[in-house]
Design a protein around this nucleic acid. Sequence first.
DNA 1: AAGCAGTGCAACCGCAGATCA
DNA 2: CTGATCTGCGGTTGCACTGCT
Length: 243
Amino acid sequence: MGRSPCCEKLGLKRGPWTAEEDRTLVAHIERHGHSNWRALPKQAGLLRCGKSCRLRWINYLRPDVKRGNFTSEEEDAIIQLHSMLGNKWSLIAARLPGRTDNEIKNVWNTHLKKRLEASNPSCQPGAPKRKAKKPMAVATPEVPTSLPVSSLEQSPSTSLELSAAEDDSMATSLENTSDEEFQIDDSFWSETLAMTVSGSGMESSGDPFAADSASPSSSSNEEMDFWVRLFIQSGDVQSLSQI
DNA sequence: AAGCAGTGCAACCGCAGATCA
DNA sequence: CTGATCTGCGGTTGCACTGCT
């Protein structure tokens, strides 16, 4: 597995994306999709490497990306999920519709980690220390607002919602619940954590959510049981029928 | 008002797994 | 089966912004 050559950096642009580049990328993806990131910039006429395009799309231009401050509920969820999963940002992001792994990683590294270090882990996370910053000029996309928006933009998102856009596998089991907020309170998390830590091979498997995938791995049974219990506790039994 | 230090976030880097020829 | 390529992920960096003195 050699390292990918990534960008043949000659002639390729780096640094912050311009609004024009954003528009070009979004327009191309809307027309042709993004089946091949490597070829995409050339096809779209962008002087960027495919990696950069992918990152920009996933972290910023995707129509279902939620911008703005994290709610305290979201922060709670991050803290809890991080305690379960460690630095599996993509998995954590899959539980937080509209949030990207990069964004969650940033939030964790900037305030959540510090907050936990500074205080008792059992204390309630409060509001973000600082007010939302004005978005950086170069990073302000005009495009996403004009794109078709998903259900994510319809709600103030004060809870753990799960959306199809964010995680196909989980969404498969939960899509019928899209109109209902998937509320998980602290006591639930405490119980879940206790159950997780004391029990199963979650730690060893490292990726309990991998069981969500279509792969009928036999080792996923335990993990599936975990989620079954989780949904039962959350009262979202309805969604189990979809699994 | 200006300077400085701290903070937050977008983007880059490099690795590893998955996939394809 | 092997090697090349693509994609995704986590860690890190650079810079704009904010708040304090």
